[in-house]
Structure formats: C-alpha cells, structure tokens
Design a protein around this nucleic acid. Structure first.
Length: 606
RNA sequence: GCGCCCGUAGCUCAGCUGGAUAGAGCGCAGGCCUCCGGAGCCUGAGGUCACAGGUUCGAAUCCUGUCGGGCGCGCCA
C-alpha cells in the first residue's frame, strides 16, 4: 500500500492510509510533546489530558488548531500562553507541519504544508469507493430497528422519515466498520391485527352480497377491499356467513355505543363463526398482503433489512413468558387489581406498568421487553431503536426493563424522529391519518422520486421538525439540494465526455505528479473540503446524524460549481489539465460515496 | 399539572459535544458575465443566538428559572 502522507510514525513505519487523518496525526505529535514535558518535569506526570485538534474556522488561524494549552491551564496552574510555548518547543519536527503559531489566549495553530494537502487526491483515486470508510467501529455488533410499522396498512409519509433516517444511520455505521444488523419488528400478534382481519372479513361479506355495516373502528382503506376481493377470488363463498348471524346480539357500535367494545365483540364472533383455521386464513391473507406491500415499498425506497422479526413467533416460542419469569426472579413484578405490574418506577419511570392484563393477556410492552432481551441474547452490543417522537414516553419504561434484566441501560439507544410536514410551495399538504386519507410513502415517492425523498428526509436533524417541500424536491434548480449535488456529479462526468470528444486522454499518473499545479484558491478550498469527507462520515456515524453528510455534500457541490465557473479544466496545458481532472474526479468520487451512504443515486448525466 | 423535543438573519436551517470576528442557501440592494451543461460570478446590508440569572480564562453550546411552539402522559399498539 502506498503511503498517503510522507511522514512516519513513532515506529518508523509509514502511517497507513486509513489512519492518515491529519487531525489524528497532529494529535499524535501533541501527545508526544506532552509526554516529553512530563519526562522533563515541566508538567506533573499524573496529569491526564485529552488532546483535541479542530479544523480552524478562519484560514488566518492556519489549518488546524488546538486548545490544549487552555485546557491544561487550570489543572497545572500555569498561564495558558506559557504552556503553549512549552508545548510548541517540545513538539517534534514534522515535514507536514509548515508553521506553528500561538494565538489569542493560548491557541496553538498549525499551518500545513500545501504539498501534503494534495495527497488527498492521490488517496481518493487510490481508494475509490472505499474512500471515507474506516475501521474505527472495530466490528462492533450493532442492531438497528427502524420503521416497524404495524402491518395493518401501507406505509405513510410519517414512516418515511424513520425509514430514511434508520437506513442512513445503518449505512454510516457500517461505513466506519461496525457490523450492522438491520431489523424490522413485525407486530403481527396484537389486537390491531385482529381488527384488520375482521375488517377484511366484513368487506368480504359485503362482496359476497351480505348487507351489514362496516365497523366504526375498522380499517377503512381501499386496500382492505382489495384484499377482501382477493380472498373472494380464491375461496368464493367459502367464508360466507349470514349477516344476521354475524350481527346477532352484538353490542351497539359508535356513535351510540362504544366502538372498541363493538369491534372486540365482532372479533370474537368472527372467530366463533369461522373457526380457527378459516379465521387464520383471513388473518394471514391480510398480513401477507400488507407485509409484501411494505417490503416492496421499502425496497423501492432503497431500504433493505437483514431480518423481519415476527412478534407472533416470539410469543409462540415462549420468549415472552421467559422474559417475565426473569423479571419475576429479580423481584420486579407484583400483582395488583388482578393484573401483573412491572415496577419500572423504581428505575426512573414515572409509574409502574402493566405487563399482564386482568384478562390474562400479555401487553405489547411485555413482548417488547422479550424482544429486546432477545436482541441482547443474540449477541448485539448496542441496540438502536428508531421511533417516532410521539413514542418518547415509552423510552423510560423500556430502559427500566433493560436494567431490570441486568443489561447496561446504555446498551439501548432510542433515537426519536420528529414528524415531517409536507408542503407544496407555501401550501401545507393535509394529512389526516384517521380518515384513511393519508399520503402514502408510495405516493410521495411517485411524486418526487426516491432520491429526493431520501435526501430531504435526512436533511434536518432528526429531533428537528421537518418541512418537506414537494415542489422544491422535484424542481430542477439550484435551490433543490439533491438536484444541486447530483448535478455536480453529472457535471464531472460531462467534462470527461467533453474530453473524449476533443480527442484528449486523461493521464491519471501524470496528473498525480503535477498536483502541485493546483494553486488556485478554488482548488485549495476543494482540497481541504475533500480532506474533511472522512471526518464527516465518522462524525455523522458517531452522532447518528446523517444530516451532517447532506450538508457536507451540499458544500462540496457548491465549491465544485464555483470552481467550475471560475476555471476551465480542459486546457491545452496537459499537465495542468490532468491535475485538474484528477481533482474533479476526486470530487466526483467523494460525492458518489456520500450519496451512496444515503442510498441516493449519483447520475452520470441528468 | 407532569415529562420529552424545539426556539439562531425577512424565510428554511448549519454551528464539528465549551473556543477566536456566530455561518450557508433563498430573498433583498448594487455591479459584472454569456462560459466545458440549462443562467452564473463578485460585493453589500441584514443578529440582544426567545428572555433572565448562574457556572469559568471563554457560553448559541452546560445548569436553573420564565415565556412561546410541537408531542406525549391507557390493563392501545
């Protein structure tokens, strides 16, 4: 492997490409300086400091800066500027560091040798699609669960953000060398599924010609009718029962009665009249059809899972019972008012929670505890759950459960995603989930396309409310960030097509040898920006903030467009030309890699 | 009432876990340009970082309180 930077580390071997972040290199130098001062007795040997190097915001402050001296001033009782002087004196000589300055209250500013900046181009062209990936995650096994919408209907736009966010975070973690397991928890065991089954059956009966009302609490979507039709096509009148028998003696439905009581009674009636096998057939038809739809939808959205985990399987395997037993052994369960409670308030929750209802049925929370225990037992070190922000009240109880089961509460990390509000220009798009008239994720995708949807969804911090402008997302203008970034990529490709038309050839090696021809301000700016890509991926992954990557890509694209407008790449001077082509090819590669992590395509032409 | 999240330029938002003169895009004002790919480029105005205290060398960032907005607070999932 060719060294990226021409410096050597302590052991005298070349610093490997993957570790060759300038920041880390400077940190190393500073640590050496501190150690040297400790040996000399200029610093107390028991002092521990974490050396941090940041990029300078202002180029007048050089390229990198550290506040080390400021941070050490207090513990050592020495004035920061004096400390800074000592540190600078103790700093080992290094070829890439051109100048070190002390500024302001005691900052140490590093000026990097411009020649070292060129090496990023060599690195990118060498690493190609591996550029920006690292091993800092050390193969840590991470489980990430996201979307996990009930399979009672198609995904809507509210799920879209969780999907885009979860998938991007998963990609980022994988990029820094974590072993990531993506999972969808299929809630196929709860009462909601029975409501779906019964909704389908009623539609089916209507299809058969029975005249009976649709339950107020049933699922009203068009898809329910389609599933009912499919059942009818397969079984004809096989599941038909007279309306009078179905409705006989049922309690009053809303508005006069209680719709919850009514639907539960209707479920019981369906079970009774159909028998277990036939009822399961309807249930299964609904589940399979909707799950298939969700899968296909997500697939087209660029989201893939390693596993679709069935709640029903979990329940049938006895895992819920096991989890409850374990809690009981730990003394966390007690009985009250006929129900069994988990004493979560002892672990920070605001009140205790029911795990087994008065009617003997385990709650959703109980199976969720079992599910998370199962994840841990599968050997994952970190569990990341991505939830809608409306579920935030649920976090303390699940954390409490983790703790009661003997797990480190930090092994569960819940990421809350705020809702997105859709706009068309200035106009807000109405989204009423209740009436079944919601905007589906599929509709969104059809309107703005997968790429724009994925990008827009993660453009903001997850905990920030998102205004999603559909009109902007489809516009072919520089105001549209996706278009702007993709366009930069296509533009590079276009330059290479132009090159061919002119009958010239791109000599990469010659370009690499002539990188020092890249002396323009625009070129220098691009080089520093490119060098920031790996750090950006690293930080975005560590902080679970894909929006940092979208912002970076926008910046890189903007810088490229500026460069494009200021300078001609296809010049007669072939050395300069090849150097510039290498630079823009590096830009293209960084954009392609970044977009790839967001599952957004990088088009060669638009 | 309690809890979680948010409050930064006219608008939409960044701000690298406490650093130097708080940034970008759009919009606005002025001036150039027609170039490899669709209009671009440069300059400028615009801020009490919601408010008030506190922590310290140093706060948009951390702590407390107040105000404003969003969302939760089931033996639903």
């Amino acid at each position: 492997m060719q060294p990226v930077l021409g410096f050597k580390d302590n052991s005298g071997s070349f610093v490997s490409q993957l570790k060759a972040f300038m920041k880390e290199h400077l940190q190393g130098l500073l640590e050496q300086a501190v150690n040297r001062l400790k040996e000399q007795g200029d610093l107390p040997s028991d002092i521990t400091v974490s050396v941090r190097v940041d990029r300078a915001r202002d180029s007048a402050h050089g390229d990198f800066a550290t506040n080390l001296a400021l941070a050490m001033a207090k513990p050592t009782g020495q004035p920061p500027r004096r400390l800074a002087e000592k540190i600078v004196q103790a700093l080992p000589a290094d070829p890439v560091v051109r100048k070190v300055e002390i500024a302001g209250p005691g900052f140490i500013n590093f000026h990097i040798d411009p020649a070292a900046q060129f090496q990023i181009v060599r690195q990118i062209l060498g690493q190609r699609d591996r550029f920006g990936r690292s091993h800092s995650g050390q193969g840590r096994r991470i489980h990430i669960e996201f979307v996990s919408a009930n399979p009672t209907g198609p995904l809507h736009v509210g799920h879209g953000r969780g999907a885009a966010y979860g998938a991007s975070v998963a990609n980022l973690l994988q990029a820094i060398g974590c072993q990531v397991h993506r999972e969808y928890y299929v809630n196929d065991a709860g009462r909601q599924m029975d409501i779906l089954a019964v909704s389908i059956w009623i539609r089916y009966l209507q299809r058969c010609g029975e005249s009976l009302p649709f339950p107020a609490n049933g699922y009203r979507g068009e898809y329910v009718i389609e599933i009912a039709d499919a059942v009818y096509a397969e079984l004809a009148d096989g599941l038909r029962r007279p309306a009078a028998e179905v409705l006989d003696g049922l309690p009053e439905d809303a508005p006069d009665g209680d719709k919850e009581v009514y639907i539960d009674a209707l479920i019981e009636r369906a079970r009774l009249l159909l028998g277990k096998d036939a009822y399961d057939k309807v249930f299964q038809a609904g589940l399979e059809s909707i799950l298939a739809d969700i899968r296909e939808d997500l697939e087209a959205f660029g989201v893939r899972y390693d596993e679709w985990f069935s709640e029903r399987r979990l329940v049938h395997s006895g895992r819920v019972q096991q989890a409850l037993d374990r809690l009981r052994e730990g003394g966390w369960l007690y009985e009250s008012e006929g129900a069994i409670w988990f004493a979560s308030s002892r672990l920070g929750d605001e009140k205790d929670r029911v795990v087994v209802r008065e009617n003997g049925q385990a709650t959703y929370f109980a199976s969720d505890i079992a599910y998370h225990l199962d994840k841990l037992e599968r050997g994952f070190e970190l569990l990341i759950d991505v939830w809608g922000a409306d579920h935030h009240g649920y976090v303390p109880r699940l954390k409490a459960a983790m703790q009661a089961l003997g797990a480190d509460p930090d092994s569960l990390e819940v990421r809350l995603v705020q809702f997105a509000v859709l706009y068309r220009g200035k106009e807000r798009v109405p989204m009423s989930t209740r009436a079944g008239e919601f905007v589906t994720l599929r509709q969104l995708r059809e309107e703005v396309g997968k790429d724009a949807a994925r990008f827009f969804y993660v453009m903001r911090k997850a905990e920030q409310h998102l205004d999603f402008d559909l009109k902007l997302a489809v516009s072919q203008s520089n105001d549209n960030p996706v278009y702007y970034v993709q366009y930069a990529h296509a533009r590079v490709c276009s330059v290479f097509r132009q090159l061919e038309e002119k009958g010239w050839k791109h000599d990469v090696d010659r370009g690499l040898e002539c990188l020092n021809r890249l002396t323009e301000n625009h070129e220098q700016a691009l080089l520093t920006l490119l060098a920031r890509y790996p750090e950006t991926v690293e930080r975005a992954a560590r902080m679970r903030e894909p929006h940092q990557l979208t912002h970076y890509l926008r910046e890189l694209a903007a810088q490229f467009h500026t460069y494009y407008n200021a300078h001609t790449f296809l010049v007669e001077d072939d050395q300069l030309r090849d150097a510039r082509l290498n630079l823009i090819e590096a830009v293209r590669q960084a954009i392609a890699n970044g977009l790839g992590l967001l599952d957004v395509t990088a088009p060669r032409s638009m």
